[in-house]
Design a protein around this nucleic acid. Sequence first.
RNA 1: GGGCGAUUAGCUCAAUUGGUAGAGCACUUCGUUUACACCGAAGGGGUUAGAGGUUCGAGUCCUCUAUCGCCCACCA
Length: 768
Amino acid sequence: MDKNYDFKTVEDKWRKDWDKKELFKFSFKEGDRLFVVDTPPPYVSADHLHAGHIMSYAQAEFIVRYKRMQGFKVFYPMGFDDNGLPTERFVEKKYKIDKSRTTKKEFIELCLKETEKGIETYRNLWNSLGISVDWSKTYSTIAPLPTKVSQWSLIDLYKKGVLYRQELPILWCPHCQTAISQSDLEDKEKNSKMNYLSFPIENEESVVIATTRPELLPACVALYFNPTDERYKELIGKKAIVPLFNQEVSFKTSEAVDKEKGTGLMMVCTWGDQEDLEKWRMDNLETKSLLTPDGKLNELGQKYQGMKIEAAREAIINDLKEQGFLIRQEDITHSVNVHERCDTPVELILSKQWFIKIADLKEKWLEMGKKIAWHPEYMRDNYEIWVNSLKWDWCVSRQRYYGVPFPFWYCSDCGEVILPDEKDLPVSPTEQKAPVNECPKCGGSIIPETDVMDTWATSSCTPFLLKEMIGNDQLFPVDLRPNAHEIIRTWDFYSIVKSTYHFNAIPFKNIMVSGHGLDEQGKKISKRLGNYVPSDQLVDEWGADAIRYWATGAGLGQNLRFNPKEIKKGKQIVTKLWNVAKFIDLNLTDFEEKEIKLETPDLWILKEMNETIKKATESFDNYEYAKAKGEIEEFFMSKFCDYYIEFVKYRLYGEDNESKKAAQTTLKKVFINILKMFAPILPFITEEIYQNFAKESIHISSWPKAEEVKDEPDFIEAISAIDEIRKYKSENQISLGAELEEYKLQTKVNLDKYGEFIKKAIRVKEIK
RNA sequence: GGGCGAUUAGCUCAAUUGGUAGAGCACUUCGUUUACACCGAAGGGGUUAGAGGUUCGAGUCCUCUAUCGCCCACCA
């Protein structure tokens, strides 16, 4: 063995070896125990890989390697989420193009090109980190099979009556020009002005209303106050005139109006916010649709027609001021719902879209959530909070180019929906003919649906996509879904929705939720802040094992700071394992194990080892890789290196062959189990060392089993005695290697039994 | 405003069911020793955020307060 451990050469060697031997390729036969992992398919548009990515994927992979050693046949494919808005936005930004100013064909080609690149970037990183996925089973969400499964899913939902198409006020992104869903929203603090406007009342004085959105005045349809509000009681039955636009609106009351907010009077427009929508729905108010899909005022805006929202707001405020309707203004900051992909404030517009029923089935979603084992447990709360906050059905249609098409055609006359035959899936309605030439109901002509699916409508199929990839229903539900907490409300929730509707089953039995990677100051790592070292540089500098070690630093659900010291510590452990390996290797000879007569220190370390195996196994079983690492490391560094190796040196160098063999056997046995326990976390160094002893990969070897060992309970006293002498030597500045002539021991210990051992282990000639 | 997490040594974190607060890093001192200077040994360092309560006993359970993070709500 080389004197120094060269991680670059070694890690590269095993990467190639595993790849060549297809070590992680999935295969199983009847009776095998399966472990199916539904890994988050990353957006290929996320081209800035950093420690946070390493952390979350490594944490899941610790469990995967552990399960494999436990004898499970692991199905661990990798997917890529490459369709939909994220990719389009990425391409738009990168090539500085606008969807509306390029042809659909060119645009899709660029998306596909970037998709390919993205997959390569990810694949390189996973490989360098030793993420043991089965690369022969890779999917991308826009490929034929996933498209087929996503389309089948929609057809099934349609047949079950839970997918419907309706014209409704929906969440709309004026920048991306597409419908979006509640889960695509993000909060953003914005500076704004609260405008206090005077609304004249017929034959009377005016009332004052506060609003941040005067540009919605043309769509104002009613004014509301709280029924207990004495100030406005007598307004019922009267009408106010909307400033500038002059439509008459009536006063209404609602318990939901807060007397303390603004002036206690609220204007309802169609539609500025959730509250508007609810009043509109409840009181059956008039519909005044004001916005165009690109976020401009339509003809209802009169002289402001064609202006963008912000421009119209400014112009209207100016005119209000001029004509004396603006009483006063206040600077405020408030949070605004923006589209998370582009930061544009979202609007509500009337549009015909496809929806999946979710808002009325909260109880069902909660019930399904309870059937899943959440790691950590409290993450279920996050899920339940989201479910309870649902207000809208899931809008799954998007007016974009690069995505999985809806598998539907319509009758242009009666609107009848035409479904394809399931055996013809996948289909692309805009490019192929419908299964019928004319509407079977009215004989009208057929037009294709041009919408594509929301990205989550495709990725939420992965739990049952996996079984389709293998063609075996036993793979569903999957055993483990690992992901970060921000996609509980999307990927996880929608997966639960779909599996419930399709199979009345949970999609995954276990979910492990990871935290975020933070920079050294504790800030979330993000592309915008640039506060990260690219992942490939990290691996190059420290090696995969050391980085993976760092990833054990936070328990499930916890954020983890980037910390070079912890990576260094990982490197130190790798080096330590290497040095121990050299030491043991040098002193090993072949012998028959049955002749061995173990001595007290041997029994002690074996007993300690079995305790460690028990604890590490339990921790890994509970997805607590951080705890497992702590237990293994403590045993290796303190018990094995600091004590046991020191205890047996004199036997290894001595003349008593029987005693020497016992020490050697124990060293080897314990060390191999240490390697095995470290293997899920440090796959490279453990493989390198293990294959010096064994001819197979450590990663398909079996996880150690704890055995019962009868040790000598009073041996602990001998260890205390050795501690005492170590301390004495250190305090008196004597080298640990120097032999003391004589020492008077304070610690109570059975010297008849352990005197000789202590003298030799810590080098003292005479103990009193 | 509601909820969920967190707060333990200078730093990063442990602490089974309530039972003498522990590691690593950093710091101080020592040690070239035949696995390891990519090293080893020893040492100093804590009113467990604060205040109450339950208990023979609280880092751990309860109540309140403060600070931080996240989720949800908040556009009148």
